[in-house]
């Protein structure tokens, strides 16, 4: 494998990174909404949210990807494979993140919530100033793990034709008939990206420590 091919793979790793970061960001946004629904009062909302979480956590991501890739054009939405992949990745990770966030919000102590009520905060203020900061801090390690899973899961989008790191490695391997170093190199690039996420996670944990209440 020469330098030019390596450069090609580094560029493809960029696509993988963009894919993963987008999915994680969208996933957190959807995850917060779904988590809110699981903790909400109305029963139907709770049940719907639980079904959502159970479905996206219960079906293999590869099957979800294939489903979205085939389903969306069938209902008249002609979208690129990148968009279908991004949709499946975000929905899947949002279900996992909703679960971790739920754990975070449930572990905010009742005393703190009562104290917020006592000083006259509205529900929104209580959420914004007390519950959300504590719950999000508590869930940083879990979200970092989820980010690593999504980075690794993003390799699957190669199956529906998104040209990211794994797809590029496959194409190079198919053209130079020497798959071992190519896939080893892809693995190394994934390792580096995993390591970067871990470092960012540690930095985030230091920047937003959980102060014992």
């Amino acid at each position: 494998m020469d330098g030019k091919l390596f450069l090609l793979m580094v560029k493809a790793a960029g696509v993988t990174a963009v894919c993963s970061v987008l999915a994680i960001a969208i996933g957190i946004a959807i995850g917060i909404v779904v988590c809110g629904a699981t903790l909400a009062r109305p029963k139907p909302l709770q049940i719907a949210a639980r079904l959502y979480v159970s479905f996206f956590r219960g079906v293999p991501l590869l099957v979800q990807l294939l489903l979205f890739y085939n389903l969306l054009p069938a209902v008249g939405l002609n979208i690129s494979s990148f968009f279908a992949a991004e949709l499946a990745l975000s929905l899947c990770t949002s279900a996992y993140q909703a679960e971790t966030l739920r754990g975070g919000f449930l572990s905010v102590s009742t005393g703190l919530k009562e104290a917020a009520d006592m000083v006259g905060m509205t529900l929104w203020q209580r959420f914004r100033r007390v519950e959300a900061p504590i719950a999000l801090r508590l869930t940083i390690p879990a979200i970092v793990n989820e980010a690593i899973s999504i980075l690794h899961a993003s390799a699957l989008v190669s199956v529906i034709g998104v040209v990211e790191l794994t797809k590029t490695a496959g194409e190079i391997a198919a053209s130079n008939y020497d798959p071992l170093p190519v896939y080893a190199c892809a693995g190394l690039l994934y390792l580096i990206m995993t390591y970067v996420i871990q470092l960012l996670g540690l930095a985030a944990e230091r920047r937003f420590p959980v102060r014992s209440a």
Binding site: L151, H152, A153, S154, A155, L156, S158, T166, A169, G170, A173, D178, P179, L180, Y183, A184, A186, G187, Y190, L191, T194, Y195
Partner: peptide
């Protein structure tokens, strides 16, 4: 660390397509 740090799909490819070279 190596196995936990890389995607399963890449490991499968490495073993299945890269294995014959070894």
């Amino acid at each position: 660390q190596l196995i936990r740090g890389t995607p399963f799909l890449v490991q499968v490819f490495l073993l299945y397509f890269g294995g014959p070279a070894l």
